[in-house]
């Protein structure tokens, strides 16, 4: 019963958007509309689940004076400061301090973390040179052609000959392969989604046979 009720609910709630997809009637779309906005609110309620876990584990580290406890202090301080001004809000939308901290701390941290990819892309590409099988070589050649075809310097070196080839690679073999993966992945997802709706797949419900 403790498992059956959730499974029945998954089925009913899961079938509803499918039904609404085919039925334009107002009665149907109105309920669907409500579900959309409601679930956003449910998801918002989930946030404290994670926050509490993070805060508790860091407070424990501080209490036990674990190695690196100082960093836990930094983490909690950052969290409190940001959340405080975030919840306070301002007269018009966000609090000014909230905006300022976002622009000068969160934003550069995000951007720099993202920019590390430049280095990682290079080292991953470099490693591909060591690969000794045919597939990796094909990958590497396609990568070089497209890269050179996309940058002005590549055009200068090759006299513009690579641009059409790289455009061809993108629009023909690449688009074909992408389409194959899209169709395959959509089928895989659909069959998994049907398993969930029908209650065949229920790992996500977690523990307890009860």
């Amino acid at each position: 019963m403790r498992r059956t009720i959730p499974l029945i609910l998954t089925f009913c709630v899961g079938m509803y958007p499918i039904f609404a997809f085919f039925v334009p009637h107002r009665v149907v779309t109105n309920i669907n509309q409500n579900l959309d906005t409601y679930l956003v609110i449910v998801a918002a309620f989930a946030l404290p689940l994670g926050v509490v876990n993070l805060v508790m584990s860091n407070i424990n580290k501080i209490k036990k004076k674990d190695k690196g406890w100082f960093y836990s202090v930094v983490l909690i301080a950052g969290l409190c400061l940001m959340a405080f001004y975030g919840i306070m809000g301002g007269d018009q939308g966000f609090h000014a301090h909230f905006q300022w901290m976002f622009e000068n701390a969160v934003s550069p941290l995000q951007a720099t973390m993202f920019s590390l990819l430049a280095f990682y892309v290079a080292s991953a590409a470099y490693r591909a040179f060591r690969a000794r099988n045919v597939e990796a070589t094909v990958l590497l050649i396609a990568a070089i052609v497209v890269m050179l075809g996309r940058i002005p310097i590549g055009d200068m070196i090759t006299g513009g000959r690579l641009t059409p080839i790289s455009e061809w690679l993108m629009t023909k073999p690449n688009a074909a392969a992408q389409r194959g993966i899209i169709i395959g992945a959509a089928l895989g997802a659909a069959s998994m989604q049907i398993r969930v709706i029908l209650g065949i797949e229920q790992t996500y419900l977690g523990s307890g046979k009860d």
Partner: peptide, 15 residues
């Protein structure tokens, strides 16, 4: 401004 929920607001804006 921002609305949470990804596809949910996208769909809802259709109505």
């Amino acid at each position: 401004g921002y609305k949470d929920g990804g596809q949910a607001p996208m769909k809802a804006m259709g109505v």
